[in-house]
Design a protein around this nucleic acid. Structure first.
Length: 924
RNA sequence: GCCCUGGUGGUGGAAUUGGUAGACACGCAGGACUUAAAAUCCUGUUCGCUGAAAAAGCGAGUGCGGGUUCAAGUCCCGCCCGGGGCACCA
């Protein structure tokens, strides 16, 4: 009876599908457990062996939890809307709906071969209208909400309107326009358009004009997390700042809660740090400086700056405002007018990328001054792009002795520097210390800087010239894309007012469109459909939602995927609650994770769900790198020289498809057939073998180092593949793929098989009770496998199986009782062979629904242990000792050891350290 | 520059709280079975030194340099290198 994994795996995959082995019910007396994978965007390239790593880990854990008596939700779906899918569709000339469907089918067939325990009845696709209906619905809830800073939660807009009608906005500062102030009677007097504009400034999902990241090549705006180093994350196209009307999510209002929530979840430190840094909270002060300018427009105006170091107020030598600052025009003196205009033009001519690439010091004097609040001196106001319009107040007080950028700027423009930190400032570099005792600092003289921060703020508050202020670096998230393949907004514009469409009209279906060219005036492709945009006397919103819209809440839909009345019933979300274990890559650290955390908080605030953090625990799987193979072509010829001989030639390195290489040995005939270019290649070999070079790099088509899981499954089976992926190393860690290494795991599985069945003799299981030694081997394995599985140390768990099977083989164990138990603990890792042998052994039911065995400690009790004896910390010998011996007994036995006697050289030891169950150390 | 990670044999990695460094595999070398191959099995495998060899022994050894400790891959201080994130954020 051979291990015919192909038949076995197909047989059980079919059986499980037929009897709905992975169907999950929302009603169960068992405790719930929710395991979630970050769902994939179904790319055209299909899966390579790196992708399923996280899926296998979560699958193993789900199956383990199920055997431990939990009702486990473990769903899968597709993030099928979004820019990449649309780009793919455009590049291949296929409508995105069709290419997406096709790509999903490819993914699905690949996933199916690996034997996952997903409940496919719960599959979601973000681009299906029965899904995006609810994405639109949630958008409408956010559109109909505002964030109450006092209670720190989202509330309904009608409550805000009630407040406005009774007291204006005196107690509700406007997040969208802080200069906005009105009374109750003002409110009542406003017309519909004015009221709508004001409400828009409060809505959590809002439309506004703002500086956005515009990517010309992609024809759309991008969110901050989609821009890396001034170019688009996808495609690497240049990105420029542009003022546009856009939809946004007011995620900044949630900054504090997003920060606080991190303390309640189990994410890695680096993940929490990334989010914390992205939010970028800082403490400081806002200070008003009186302006002095010959320009009449500056009359009575103040310049408001934000600083985290108000203690350095006496070290201010100049002010800097952003080129986009609203005061630029008003304060510029006539003498400086042309220089300022020229500078602003220069700044506007520079793309984001240029600014990033060459950070040269630039700026212009405005001609205006500020009065120092505590001293009779005037401070020049400069304009420079190193101050960002979007952060703080868009203006700073520059303290060159303490801040590196201010220092460089002062040096560049020969601005005199005031030293307030004495010897801490050397005149060559700025020193941002907080330890110095202040000098040249008026009432702060003699105070330590750290203490002066609070003192100075208090003073400024007394004088009414400044106040304590907390700032966040995070910006509101751009929420519209000028693209086709996304959720249409359920919004219609009439007389420049955005009206929400009624819930009854959802979903607003994405119309079919064959030509995806941009619409006029930078609008999306939907603008090309006048018959669609014209709607009930108004115009539909033609932007679509970004890729992260659907993924911000998909974990909720899995709980209740077929619900036609609600996005997810409260009953279902109360039952399943938070995702207990979320597995995915780090690339979503600040994008997807922040957005879905925010959506969860908003839905919680509005009473739709009962928890405000979506993911209780997050595990980031590492990436699997490709192991590329290289051949060396002698320059200018069609001759290829083997890696060991290449140093004697001038060569060009060429990537060769890894499937043409066994280890490092090139299949030369295969190589010739691979590409027409190489058909007449000749080889300089090492004793008839052409050795390739190798390099570890990203697994990618262009390096020809992609390994397809389908090929591995055909050759070794899904069980081997699953176990090998787990065996490769810790899940969280990046690691290279080495197809050769899989042999070891495959051998293990075959060896396991032989405990149950023999090629000639057939089934070799016996009813005889297993020996104590076998039970000991088994329980040792069980204990370690369970511990390791529970702490996601899957690689060591696989080792334990190997050790256990090696031991049971040596012990010649064929006990049906023992080996059936072994199948249960193996099933999470290798479900197919476990199920097959479970039925071969004549067990009832499915191994998937067995009870995880518990450890019988009595077999693990040790009466003696082999202790290492160290002399001065260095192990010299070992000794077998009874575990219950006293210190005195041990000392006596140790002193009698020949090796110890030899090292003592007749002296007596200073001390003998005996740590029970660990070791013995003799100190000489 | 700042923050976070990681650095262990030829390779992937193990060592959960300071207690036998290198588990388990890959690869390699040798052997058994076979006409042969595949498959399978066995033995060895951190490096260096002393042994003809085996047995055995000695020395060094977890990126580098210090330290704490009876004992350090693990803890502390100072560096170096790789990976990831952020980057005029006042």
């Amino acid at each position: 009876m051979e291990y015919g994994f192909r038949d076995i795996e197909r047989k059980w995959q079919d059986a499980w599908k037929q009897n709905k082995a992975y169907k999950v019910d929302n009603n169960s007396p068992k405790p719930k457990y929710y395991v979630l994978d970050m769902f994939p965007y179904p790319s055209g390239a299909g899966l390579h062996v790196g992708h399923p790593l996280g899926y296998i880990a979560s699958d193993v854990f789900s199956r383990y939890k199920r055997l431990k008596g939990f009702n486990v939700l473990h769903p899968m779906g597709y993030d099928s809307f979004g820019l990449p899918a649309e780009q793919y569709a455009i590049e291949h000339g296929i409508p995105p709906a069709i290419s997406t469907e096709y790509n999903i089918n490819t993914f699905r067939s690949q996933l199916d071969k690996i034997g996952f325990c997903y409940d496919w009845d719960r599959e979601v696709r973000t681009s299906n209208d029965d899904y995006y209906k609810w994405t639109q619905w949630i958008f409408l809830q956010l559109f109909d909400s505002w964030f109450d800073r006092k209670s720190q939660k989202a509330r309904r807009l009608h409550e805000l309107i009630d407040i406005f009608s009774s007291e204006g906005n005196a107690n509700i500062p406007c997040p969208g326009d802080k200069h906005l102030h009105f009374t109750a009677s003002d409110w009542k007097a406003f017309n519909e358009k004015q009221q709508a504009d004001i409400l828009m400034h409060y809505r959590i999902a809002f439309c506004g004009i703002g500086e956005v990241n515009w990517c010309e090549a992609l024809g759309t705006v991008l969110a901050n997390d989609e821009v890396i180093n001034g170019v688009s994350e996808r495609g690497g196209h240049p990105v420029v700042k542009k003022k546009l009307r856009q939809w946004y999510l007011r995620i900044t209002e949630y900054a504090e809660r997003l920060l606080a929530g991190l303390d309640t979840v189990d994410f890695s430190d680096s993940m929490k740090d990334m989010q914390t840094n992205w939010i970028g909270k800082s403490f400081g002060a806002e200070i008003d400086f009186d302006l002095v300018s010959e320009n009449m427009l500056a009359e009575g105006k103040k310049l408001k700056v934000y600083t985290t170091r108000p203690d350095t107020i006496f070290g201010v030598d100049f002010m800097v405002i952003a080129p986009e600052h609203e005061l630029v025009k008003q304060i510029t003196s006539s003498g400086q007018a042309s220089a300022v205009t020229e500078y602003i033009d220069y700044v506007n001519s520079r793309s984001e990328r240029e600014r990033m690439a060459e950070k040269k010091i630039s700026g212009v004097f405005s001609g205006a001054y500020c009065k120092h609040p505590f001293e009779e001196r005037q401070i020049p106001v400069w304009i420079s792009e190193y101050v960002l319009a979007g952060y703080g107040t868009g203006a700073i007080m520059a303290v060159p002795c303490g801040d590196e950028r201010d220092f460089k700027f002062a040096q560049h423009f020969n601005i005199p520097i005031t030293n307030i930190i004495g010897s801490h400032f050397n005149g060559v570099d700025a020193n941002p210390t907080k330890e110095a005792i202040l000098e040249n600092s008026g009432f702060l003289n003699g105070t330590k800087m750290l203490d002066a921060i609070a003192i100075s703020i208090t003073k400024m508050e007394e004088l009414g010239i400044g106040k304590r202020q907390t700032n966040y670096r995070m910006r509101d998230a751009a929420f519209s894309r000028q693209r086709y393949w996304g959720e249409p907004f359920p919004i219609v514009w009439k007389n420049d007012i955005a009206y929400a469409l009624p819930v009854s009209s959802l979903p607003v279906a994405l119309p079919q469109l064959s030509d995806l060219k941009p619409g006029p005036d930078g609008q999306g492709p939907l603008a090309n459909l006048p018959e669609w945009t014209a709607f009930e006397g108004g115009t539909r919103e033609v932007n679509t939602m970004p890729g992260y819209a659907g993924s911000s809440w998909y974990f909720l839909r899995y709980m209740d995927p077929q619900n036609k009345q609600e996005f997810c019933s409260r009953e279902a979300s109360d039952y399943w609650g938070q995702v207990d274990l979320y597995i995915g890559g780090t690339e979503h650290a600040v994008g997807h994770l922040l957005y879905s955390r925010m959506w969860t908080k908003a839905l919680f605030d509005l009473g739709y769900i009962g928890f405000d953090e979506p993911f209780k625990r997050l595990v980031n799987q590492g990436k699997i790198g490709g192991d590329s193979r290289l051949v060396y072509r002698v320059r200018g010829t069609k001759q290829f020289v083997s890696a060991g001989l290449k140093d004697g030639y001038e060569t060009d390195e060429i990537h060769v498809d890894v499937t043409l290489v066994d280890g490092f040995d090139l299949d030369m005939d295969g190589f010739k057939k691979w590409k027409p270019d190489f058909a007449d290649a000749s080889f300089i070999t090492e004793e008839g073998i052409y050795k390739c070079g190798s390099r570890l790099e990203k697994m990618s088509k262009r390096y020809f180092n992609v390994v397809n899981p389908d090929d591995i499954v055909v050759k070794y089976g899904a069980d081997t593949f699953r176990m090998y992926e787990m065996f490769l190393g810790p899940v969280e860690q990046d690691k290279p793929w080495d197809t050769k290494g899989i042999e070891g795991v495959h051998r293990f599985i075959k060896k396991l098989w032989r405990l149950y069945a023999d090629a000639e003799k057939g089934i070799v299981l016996t009813d005889a009770t297993a020996t104590d030694a076998s039970w000991k081997a088994f329980y040792k394995m069980l204990k370690k496998v369970e511990e390791d599985t529970a702490r996601f140390s899957f690689n060591t768990a696989v080792s334990c199986f190997m050790i256990g099977v090696n031991e049971l083989t040596d012990l010649n164990c064929h006990s049906k009782d023992l080996l059936s138990k072994l199948l249960i603990i193996l099933a999470p890792y290798a479900p197919h062979i476990s199920e097959e042998l479970w039925s071969v052994a004549g067990n009832q039911g499915s191994v998937l629904d067995s009870n995880y065995p518990s450890v019988e400690e009595k077999y693990l009790v040790e009466t003696s242990k082999e202790y290492p004896i160290a002399i001065n910390g260095k192990t010299r010998t070992t000794i077998e000792l009874d575990v219950n011996l006293s210190q005195q007994d041990v000392e006596k036995l140790v002193m009698a050891e020949p090796v110890v006697i030899k090292w003592l050289e007749g002296k007596s030891p200073k001390k003998i350290i005996y740590v029970k169950n660990k070791m013995i150390n003799v100190v000489i």
